[in-house]
Design a protein around this nucleic acid. Sequence first.
DNA 1: GCTTTATATATAATCTTTTATATATAAAGG
DNA 2: CCTTTATATATAAAAGATTATATATAAAGC
Lengths: 180, 180
Amino acid sequence: MLKYALLGFLNYSTYSGYDLKQLMDVSTSNFWHAKQSQIYTTLKKLEKDGIVISHIEPQESRPNRRVYEITESGKEDLRNWISQPMTTIESRKETLLLKLFFSSQLDPQSVLTELRLQQNLHQAELTRFQGVTKDVIQQFSSSEDMQKEAQFWEATRRFGELYAEMYIRWLDETIENLES
Amino acid sequence: MLKYALLGFLNYSTYSGYDLKQLMDVSTSNFWHAKQSQIYTTLKKLEKDGIVISHIEPQESRPNRRVYEITESGKEDLRNWISQPMTTIESRKETLLLKLFFSSQLDPQSVLTELRLQQNLHQAELTRFQGVTKDVIQQFSSSEDMQKEAQFWEATRRFGELYAEMYIRWLDETIENLES
DNA sequence: GCTTTATATATAATCTTTTATATATAAAGG
DNA sequence: CCTTTATATATAAAAGATTATATATAAAGC
């Protein structure tokens, strides 16, 4: 699926692996992330499959950049994927819930400590969503032909915000129940 | 991490791979799931590592069961994992958001169709959480020494409920924004 | 002057997860 | 009578993702 994240960006412009990592970190990290190594190996695989092509862009005093470009075949693949509707709910993995589920044998105080720690982390995350990420969207969508994009990007930002709020609410409730 | 899901169950009783798959499907699937093949191969690996041991339980007219038991080393490993607090937020992967993020080139109507489909799926999921899963908890926690467990299990059920509500709310908002 | 951060790519090894297939039989539904 | 569902385990192959390491240099901070 990382494939489509990369193609999605390359559909706007040409980028290097390094660029794509930066882009994902500031825009999609909330719902899709990847390590540097995976990005590089996936780009290589996509080129082998004829979905992107690359060329070296020489630089003085910096390592050369390998810049990737989406091919027609890649554009079709991307369009096809986006237009194919998802007919199921995606399943989650929540390590904190897994730990909590088996926490009955543990000291009740350390469970509460962990939940309060997560509360702080999610609170910080929420604050971040209400501020910084909004700036990124405005920055990207300053041009007129980006108005449509901005709407979708705002939707994904909003999801992060609602998710953090929900998580904090759940932690509040859970802590309260365990304290009594 | 599947390792700890399996150990968590085996800490209560001995189970076969088949049992563990059933258990996960009715209890943890909301926040942790695994395919049959992964469960079997993981159990094999855990036995090689001395974390569980197994023995064959013969059955007439049914395939023999391989029943697993947690070892002392396994119990220690589990306790250790549970008591180790998580100091970061877990990152998510939401394919629907990824698609939405790159949907600007797509026909607006098909985006709305997909979102409405997800709305129905999450609505059904929410109804399921408010009913069926509650029964499972009551069934499991009927005995007195399960009161503590029930509290943690209810917390994970509640998470599923809040998550579905949040998701539906986000879909509502997003659809409304796209329609106008 | 020294350390850290940023720019840039690449690969090996490992771990995790999914998809697919094989085998065997009883009970239940239609 | 036939098909599906449930019981049960096992493994191969592939895909997806993480951890770790290597290399190289400029700019910025201290």
